[in-house]
Write a protein that binds this DNA or RNA. Structure first.
Length: 505
RNA sequence: GCGGCCGUGGUCUAGCCUGGACUAGGACGUGGGCUUUCCGAGCCCAAUACCCGGGUUCAAAUCCCGGCGGCCGCACCA
């Protein structure tokens, strides 16, 4: 049953133009998806809403939005650790065919630290010590490096570069410039929305695991000498968050504990207020996008899942039809990034905190755009409400805000409907409106519902007499009669319905 | 990457085992026309498919091999 939902979503996405595999007419390789006409609009709306929420309307500290290059030089990613970290030495068992990470295997079996060793060296260690398949004892073969970063060569020469594996690095690389040009004072934040690339071994589940994906990230920089947290912490501190603690995960049952964001810090579960601030804001943000709080949880990543420098990672996981899946990664990166970039580049990346030089600490919420789009689709999809499937999309992100429909295909009605449509199209408000006069009115309502259009505006015979139209609400199919002059305002205001008090828009 | 299952118009599918009557059938959707005064109405017409390559055969959607792609599991991954 739950698997069927994922299938329905994928079918709907193909049928209505939300997303489809890249280069599908060639059956090109997996892990790449294109957003179609509706998907592209929806993504735009989501990004705008996110920027509105986490950048423009942020009053707890300054947030600067940047737009960095997708291609980063070798040196930068060597410094960040990605060149070494994002390469896995792999080998597989000759007998049972299982793939293993050679470095992990050696550490587990021999207790040797092998970080930074080449694949040849690792192969030698395996051979000398007779390390075999932990599953069946078979011989290991096919040693090779798996690079998770896409390697490029820039210019005519040999200069190595990579497609960025995360947007975060641009922010650290720009840290000094931004701090100066914006005259930034701690705490402050830098945000970025854009593509990242990871050469996953086997991408799966449509747009959930992609090789090219979009991130919406914030890096908050704050002084490690202060524990007071962001200015707005008091406001959101009472928000209830659900945390899947390490203890619960060890015990093997996935019961999350509910507590206020404020208490999560005081009880030492969440390492600082900046992180807790974002956890609380994320709950509100996704609630405003139609995801119920009980279907969200923050999983405290286990020590072996986090890099050594991490001060604690909390993944916001959402319950999908196929299980819990991360949609936001929240990381406390301490001063790791600025420190390594400072060391490798020779630049001073410290800042002044009341006369004391400090390397700022960093909290990073990183939102996965495609996963969020998919989550919204799953939580909006309704079957059985009407004769046809219905997408009750959050009104702020739905691609189509209104459909203009002549009741019948008659010249008097279509020409008046076209006038209404073109007038709305010319609006300066961010309201995307479409026109449809093909098929019966019922069929057109059905199509609009399936595309998740917020409103249907129908031009009927009364319109010709008194310049009023009916406005049909997607969620309850109720119609009200309004003046044409009011339409633009109605459609616009309707986008923000339900966002009050969510801390979202 | 390994193993299992799978690949037919836009979507879902019949046919495949037991090659030939398949000029590949259906449903929904789509386009055009007629009709139609508010929730996939009706009638008529039309377009669109056997993943790719090779082999076996008089004959391949059907059997065999390879490739590509998908789903699930393992592994990998934020």
């Amino acid at each position: 049953m739950p698997e069927q939902l994922a299938e329905s979503i994928v079918q709907l996405a193909l049928r209505r133009g939300f997303f489809n595999p890249t280069a599908e007419i060639y059956r090109a390789s997996a892990g790449f998806y294109d957003l179609g006409p509706l998907g592209a609009l929806m993504k735009n709306n989501l990004i705008n809403y996110w920027i509105d929420t986490f950048v423009k309307r942020e009053t707890s500290f300054d947030v600067y939005l940047i737009d960095g290059s997708l291609i980063l030089p070798y040196d930068a990613l060597k410094a960040s650790g990605h060149v070494d970290k994002f390469t896995d030495p792999m080998a597989e068992c000759k007998k049972c065919g299982r793939a293993h990470r050679v470095d992990q295997l050696i550490e587990d079996v021999l207790g040797l630290k092998v970080e930074g060793k080449s694949i040849e060296e690792l192969q030698e260690i395996v051979r000398k010590n007779g390390v075999s398949c932990p599953n069946c004892g078979g011989e290991l073969a096919g040693f090779k490096e798996h690079h998770l970063m896409f390697k490029l060569s820039v210019g005519g020469g040999e200069e190595t570069a990579f497609l960025r594996p995360e947007t975060a690095q641009n922010i650290f690389l720009n840290f000094k410039r931004i701090a100066f040009s914006m005259r930034a004072k701690l705490p402050f934040a830098v945000a970025q929305v854009g593509k990242s690339f990871r050469n996953e071994i086997s991408p799966r589940q449509s747009i959930i695991r992609l090789r090219e994906f979009s991130q919406m990230e914030v890096e908050v920089f704050f002084s490690p000498l202060r524990a007071d947290g962001p200015r707005g912490f008091e406001e959101v501190g009472d928000t209830v968050i659900r945390v899947l603690t390490r203890e619960e995960q060890m015990r093997g049952n996935g019961e999350a504990v509910e507590l206020r964001a404020r208490d999560a810090v005081e009880e030492g579960i969440v390492p600082n207020r900046f992180l807790a601030y974002y956890l609380a804001r994320e709950v509100r943000f996704f609630q405003s996008l139609g995801i119920p709080p009980e279907n969200m949880r923050f999983r405290h990543l286990l020590p072996e899942e986090t890099p050594h420098y991490s001060g604690g990672n909390f993944d916001l996981e959402v319950k999908f039809s196929f299980g819990w899946k991360e949609i936001v990664g929240n990381a406390y990166r301490r001063d790791y990034d600025l420190t390594v970039h400072s060391r490798h580049s020779g630049e001073d990346l410290s800042m002044d905190d009341n006369g004391v030089k400090v390397v700022p600490h960093v909290v990073e919420p990183s939102f996965g755009v495609e996963r969020i789009l998919y989550a919204i689709l799953e939580y909006s999809y309704r079957e059985g409400v009407r004769e046809w499937p219905l997408l009750m999309l959050p009104r702020i992100v739905s691609p189509i805000k209104a459909v203009v429909l002549p009741l019948l295909d008659r010249e008097a009605l279509t020409s008046r409907a076209w006038e209404v449509y073109t007038a709305l199209r010319m609006s300066r408000r961010p309201i995307y409106v479409v026109y449809d006069d093909r098929g019966s009115i019922g069929r057109r309502y059905a199509r609009a519902d399936e595309a998740g259009a917020n409103l249907c505006i129908t031009i009927d015979f009364q319109t010709l007499k008194d310049n009023t139209v009916t406005v049909r609400d997607r969620d309850n199919a109720q119609q009200v009669r309004v003046k044409i002059d009011e339409l633009e305002e109605i459609i616009f205001n309707d986008m923000y319905r339900g966002l009050e008090g969510t801390g979202g828009g």
